[in-house]
Design a protein around this nucleic acid. Structure first.
Length: 226
DNA sequence: ACCCAGGGTCATA
DNA sequence: TATGACCATGGG
């Protein structure tokens, strides 16, 4: 980036205004770190409301636990996660990942003790776990300082004129990680606030943006899509 | 009857 | 490096 000082100041101003407007977000919406991992995989290109149904199915079946899923018949697992879409893929990816996790670390608690850099490389090496899913798990399930870039983040960045939004994943991740204080709490809140903004105010459907708390920045409705 | 949602993988040019 | 097909459900 050309002007790191300006970028840093702007990112912090945006955060301050979002936090003031929306308040604390307490993300990720899950009861346990393990549930975060499950949700992170199931929510790939899928509305969260559908993921909730799938997680409810797992819970009702007493299957919201590592060993239960690791040992489950693939057909049955696919049937349980069906509402989240791509259920054949996701059942396999989910079970493979959990089997690997148990084999490599034995438990979520043990996994949390491993260094972040190694964990990220290991997660990205799993089939079905790309950068966003990996960073979501790192930040919200494993407590590691890793910024999550998703579709909402890209939209918000474009809207703010901070980026085109179509940049490669790692480039946008670097933008935040280089210009923000190194705090996992800040990373989590910032990402959650960008999602809320994307969900409730800055939809393509609602380009007026009158009540958008970011109008004072450079909230340009015409740059929503790229 | 569309359109899309908190991606990832693989094949192709 | 960049685009396209594919995976599939449920809500607007």
């Amino acid at each position: 980036m050309k002007k790191p000082r300006r970028m840093r100041a702007k990112l912090m101003r945006v955060y301050r205004d979002l936090a003031r407007h929306f308040g604390p977000q307490h993300w990720w919406p899950a009861r346990t770190p393990f549930e975060v991992m499950v949700g992170a995989i199931l929510t790939q290109n899928t509305a969260w409301s559908n993921v909730e149904k799938a997680i409810a199915n797992l819970r009702a079946a007493r299957a919201l636990a590592p060993r239960a899923i690791a040992e489950m018949d693939l057909r049955r697992l696919a049937r349980l996660v069906r509402p989240s879409g791509y259920y054949n893929q996701k059942a396999k990816r989910l079970r493979d990942f959990i089997r690997w996790m148990l084999d490599r670390y034995g438990s979520v608690a043990a996994m949390r003790r491993a260094p972040a850099a190694r964990l990220r490389a290991e997660l990205l090496a799993r089939n079905g776990i790309g950068p966003e899913t990996a960073d979501s798990i790192l930040l919200y399930a494993l407590g590691k300082r890793s910024f999550v870039i998703d579709a909402y983040t890209r939209r918000a960045l474009a809207r703010l004129g901070l980026a085109r939004g179509s940049e490669p994943y790692e480039e946008l991740r670097d933008l935040f990680e280089r210009n923000l204080p190194r705090s996992k709490e800040l990373y989590g809140e910032y990402h959650a606030l960008l999602v809320v903004l994307g969900k409730d105010l800055c939809r393509k459907k609602n380009p007026s943006c009158e009540t958008c708390p970011l109008v004072r920045h450079k909230c340009n409705p015409l740059r929503t899509q790229a």
